[in-house]
Amino acid sequence: MSDAVEAGPSPDDRALLERLRAGDDLAYGDLYRRHAPVVRRFALSRPRPGIDVDDVVAEVFLRTLRAVRTGHGPRETIRTYLLTAVRRVLGEWSAARRDEPMNADELGEHAPRQRDHQFVQAEGELLARAFDRLPARWREVLWRTEVEGHQPASIADQLGLTPNATAVLAHRARRGLREAYQQASELPVRRAARCLRRA
Protein backbone atom coordinates (compact mmCIF):
# COMPACT_ATOMS: atom_id res chain seq x y z
CA MET A 1 0.00 0.00 0.00
CA SER A 2 1.32 3.45 -0.88
CA ASP A 3 2.50 5.79 1.86
CA ALA A 4 0.13 8.43 0.52
CA VAL A 5 -2.95 6.24 1.03
CA GLU A 6 -4.53 5.90 4.43
CA ALA A 7 -6.93 3.02 5.00
CA GLY A 8 -8.78 4.80 7.78
CA PRO A 9 -8.26 6.73 10.98
CA SER A 10 -6.23 4.87 13.54
CA PRO A 11 -7.84 4.93 16.97
CA ASP A 12 -4.37 5.37 18.43
CA ASP A 13 -3.71 8.43 16.27
CA ARG A 14 -7.10 9.88 17.13
CA ALA A 15 -6.41 9.45 20.84
CA LEU A 16 -2.93 10.96 20.50
CA LEU A 17 -4.32 13.96 18.62
CA GLU A 18 -6.92 14.50 21.33
CA ARG A 19 -4.20 14.35 23.99
CA LEU A 20 -2.01 16.76 22.03
CA ARG A 21 -4.91 19.16 21.54
CA ALA A 22 -5.54 19.00 25.30
CA GLY A 23 -1.93 20.00 26.01
CA ASP A 24 -0.22 16.62 26.51
CA ASP A 25 3.31 17.19 25.20
CA LEU A 26 4.23 13.50 25.33
CA ALA A 27 1.67 12.77 22.62
CA TYR A 28 3.73 14.83 20.17
CA GLY A 29 6.75 12.56 20.61
CA ASP A 30 4.56 9.49 20.09
CA LEU A 31 3.09 10.90 16.88
CA TYR A 32 6.53 11.91 15.63
CA ARG A 33 8.02 8.46 16.24
CA ARG A 34 5.06 6.79 14.58
CA HIS A 35 4.86 8.90 11.42
CA ALA A 36 8.27 10.54 10.83
CA PRO A 37 9.73 7.58 8.84
CA VAL A 38 6.80 7.62 6.37
CA VAL A 39 6.88 11.42 6.10
CA ARG A 40 10.61 11.26 5.40
CA ARG A 41 10.23 8.56 2.72
CA PHE A 42 7.48 10.56 1.05
CA ALA A 43 9.58 13.75 1.10
CA LEU A 44 12.51 11.83 -0.40
CA SER A 45 10.26 10.69 -3.26
CA ARG A 46 9.37 14.29 -4.19
CA PRO A 47 11.49 16.76 -6.20
CA ARG A 48 13.32 18.99 -3.72
CA PRO A 49 16.09 21.01 -5.40
CA GLY A 50 18.76 21.64 -2.77
CA ILE A 51 16.30 21.23 0.12
CA ASP A 52 17.35 19.00 3.00
CA VAL A 53 14.75 16.30 3.66
CA ASP A 54 15.24 16.46 7.43
CA ASP A 55 14.43 20.17 7.41
CA VAL A 56 11.22 19.35 5.56
CA VAL A 57 10.23 16.69 8.10
CA ALA A 58 10.90 19.05 11.01
CA GLU A 59 8.88 21.84 9.39
CA VAL A 60 5.95 19.54 8.61
CA PHE A 61 5.69 18.34 12.21
CA LEU A 62 6.12 21.86 13.58
CA ARG A 63 3.30 23.18 11.37
CA THR A 64 1.09 20.27 12.34
CA LEU A 65 1.74 20.90 16.02
CA ARG A 66 0.93 24.59 15.70
CA ALA A 67 -2.27 23.80 13.81
CA VAL A 68 -3.44 21.28 16.41
CA ARG A 69 -2.56 23.56 19.32
CA THR A 70 -4.61 26.41 17.80
CA GLY A 71 -7.68 24.20 17.39
CA HIS A 72 -7.14 23.37 13.72
CA GLY A 73 -5.27 20.61 11.96
CA PRO A 74 -6.06 16.91 11.74
CA ARG A 75 -8.51 15.20 14.06
CA GLU A 76 -8.38 11.64 12.73
CA THR A 77 -6.37 11.17 9.52
CA ILE A 78 -3.01 12.59 10.49
CA ARG A 79 -1.05 10.68 7.82
CA THR A 80 -2.94 12.37 4.98
CA TYR A 81 -2.51 15.75 6.67
CA LEU A 82 1.25 15.23 7.11
CA LEU A 83 1.81 14.16 3.50
CA THR A 84 -0.21 17.12 2.23
CA ALA A 85 1.96 19.36 4.41
CA VAL A 86 5.08 17.84 2.79
CA ARG A 87 3.81 18.90 -0.65
CA ARG A 88 2.98 22.37 0.63
CA VAL A 89 6.34 22.91 2.34
CA LEU A 90 8.30 21.67 -0.66
CA GLY A 91 6.24 23.88 -2.99
CA GLU A 92 6.79 26.97 -0.86
CA TRP A 93 10.48 26.36 -0.29
CA SER A 94 11.16 25.47 -3.92
CA ALA A 95 9.47 28.69 -5.06
CA ALA A 96 11.49 30.69 -2.52
CA ARG A 97 14.75 29.10 -3.68
CA ARG A 98 14.04 30.01 -7.30
CA ASP A 99 14.08 33.65 -6.24
CA GLU A 100 17.46 33.38 -4.50
CA PRO A 101 20.86 33.40 -6.23
CA MET A 102 22.95 30.28 -5.67
CA ASN A 103 25.75 30.61 -3.16
CA ALA A 104 29.27 29.25 -3.55
CA ASP A 105 28.57 26.09 -1.58
CA GLU A 106 25.59 25.22 -3.77
CA LEU A 107 27.58 25.86 -6.95
CA GLY A 108 30.23 23.43 -5.72
CA GLU A 109 27.80 20.65 -4.87
CA HIS A 110 27.60 17.78 -7.33
CA ALA A 111 25.02 15.73 -5.41
CA PRO A 112 22.34 16.50 -2.84
CA ARG A 113 23.46 16.28 0.76
CA GLN A 114 22.28 13.04 2.33
CA ARG A 115 22.17 12.33 6.04
CA ASP A 116 22.10 8.85 7.45
CA HIS A 117 18.46 8.02 8.17
CA GLN A 118 19.25 5.93 11.25
CA PHE A 119 21.33 8.77 12.69
CA VAL A 120 18.51 11.28 12.17
CA GLN A 121 15.95 8.92 13.70
CA ALA A 122 18.21 8.25 16.68
CA GLU A 123 18.76 11.98 17.16
CA GLY A 124 15.02 12.59 17.21
CA GLU A 125 14.58 9.81 19.76
CA LEU A 126 17.28 11.30 21.98
CA LEU A 127 15.67 14.73 21.85
CA ALA A 128 12.23 13.31 22.69
CA ARG A 129 13.73 11.31 25.58
CA ALA A 130 15.55 14.38 26.91
CA PHE A 131 12.37 16.49 26.70
CA ASP A 132 10.36 13.79 28.50
CA ARG A 133 12.83 13.84 31.41
CA LEU A 134 12.35 17.55 32.12
CA PRO A 135 10.08 18.73 34.93
CA ALA A 136 6.53 19.46 33.77
CA ARG A 137 6.97 23.20 34.40
CA TRP A 138 10.03 23.32 32.14
CA ARG A 139 8.30 21.31 29.41
CA GLU A 140 5.37 23.70 29.52
CA VAL A 141 7.43 26.89 29.24
CA LEU A 142 9.61 25.39 26.49
CA TRP A 143 6.57 24.33 24.54
CA ARG A 144 4.89 27.71 24.86
CA THR A 145 8.00 29.74 23.97
CA GLU A 146 9.99 27.56 21.56
CA VAL A 147 7.25 25.66 19.72
CA GLU A 148 4.25 27.95 19.89
CA GLY A 149 6.38 31.09 19.63
CA HIS A 150 5.03 33.02 22.63
CA GLN A 151 7.13 35.65 24.37
CA PRO A 152 7.67 35.02 28.10
CA ALA A 153 5.78 38.20 28.99
CA SER A 154 2.68 37.05 27.08
CA ILE A 155 2.35 33.79 29.03
CA ALA A 156 3.50 35.01 32.46
CA ASP A 157 -0.04 35.42 33.84
CA GLN A 158 -1.04 31.93 32.68
CA LEU A 159 1.97 30.49 34.49
CA GLY A 160 1.35 32.58 37.60
CA LEU A 161 4.70 34.33 37.29
CA THR A 162 6.08 37.77 36.53
CA PRO A 163 7.44 38.35 33.00
CA ASN A 164 11.02 38.34 34.37
CA ALA A 165 10.47 35.11 36.29
CA THR A 166 8.99 33.52 33.16
CA ALA A 167 12.03 34.55 31.12
CA VAL A 168 14.33 33.06 33.78
CA LEU A 169 12.26 29.86 33.83
CA ALA A 170 12.49 29.60 30.02
CA HIS A 171 16.26 30.11 30.17
CA ARG A 172 16.66 27.39 32.82
CA ALA A 173 14.43 25.04 30.86
CA ARG A 174 16.49 25.51 27.67
CA ARG A 175 19.68 24.86 29.61
CA GLY A 176 18.09 21.82 31.24
CA LEU A 177 17.05 20.45 27.84
CA ARG A 178 20.60 20.87 26.51
CA GLU A 179 22.02 19.03 29.53
CA ALA A 180 19.41 16.25 29.33
CA TYR A 181 20.12 15.83 25.62
CA GLN A 182 23.87 15.63 26.23
CA GLN A 183 23.34 13.02 28.96
CA ALA A 184 21.00 11.01 26.74
CA SER A 185 23.46 11.13 23.83
CA GLU A 186 26.45 10.15 25.98
CA LEU A 187 24.74 7.02 27.34
CA PRO A 188 24.94 4.99 24.07
CA VAL A 189 28.59 6.07 23.69
CA ARG A 190 29.42 4.85 27.20
CA ARG A 191 27.60 1.56 26.54
CA ALA A 192 29.52 1.08 23.29
CA ALA A 193 32.81 1.81 25.07
CA ARG A 194 32.02 -0.80 27.72
CA CYS A 195 31.23 -3.35 25.02
CA LEU A 196 34.52 -2.60 23.24
CA ARG A 197 36.47 -3.02 26.48
CA ARG A 198 34.82 -6.40 27.06
CA ALA A 199 35.53 -7.60 23.51
Rank of each mutant, 00 (worst) to 15 (best):
M1G: 06
S2H: 11
D3F: 01
A4S: 09
A4E: 13
V5S: 10
A7C: 02
G8R: 05
P9D: 04
S10R: 12
D13A: 11
L16D: 15
L17Y: 04
E18G: 01
D25R: 13
G29I: 03
L31H: 06
Y32M: 08
H35T: 08
A36L: 03
P37Y: 10
V38K: 10
R40G: 07
R40D: 15
R40H: 15
R41H: 09
F42M: 03
F42K: 03
A43P: 01
R46Q: 09
D52Y: 00
D54S: 10
D55Q: 04
D55H: 07
A58W: 05
V60T: 01
F61L: 09
F61T: 07
F61H: 07
P74F: 11
E76D: 13
T77L: 14
I78V: 15
I78Y: 11
R79Q: 13
T84H: 04
G91D: 14
W93G: 00
S94R: 15
S94I: 09
A95H: 06
A95D: 05
R98N: 01
D99C: 10
P101I: 03
M102S: 11
N103Y: 06
E106I: 06
L107G: 00
G108S: 09
G108E: 13
E109I: 00
A111F: 15
R113L: 13
R113G: 02
R113K: 10
Q114R: 15
V120R: 15
Q121N: 05
E123M: 08
E123D: 11
E125T: 14
L127N: 06
A128L: 11
L134V: 05
W138V: 01
R139M: 09
R139C: 07
R139L: 08
E140P: 03
E140D: 15
V141K: 08
W143P: 00
R144F: 13
R144Y: 12
V147K: 14
H150C: 08
Q151H: 10
Q151K: 11
P152R: 01
P152E: 02
I155T: 04
A156G: 08
D157K: 11
L159P: 12
G160P: 11
G160N: 10
L169Y: 09
L169W: 11
A170E: 09
A170G: 02
H171G: 02
H171D: 08
R172I: 00
A173I: 05
R174T: 05
G176K: 07
L177K: 05
A180P: 09
Q182L: 05
Q183G: 09
E186S: 09
V189S: 00
R190W: 06
R191P: 00
A193I: 12
A193S: 14
L196M: 07
A199S: 12
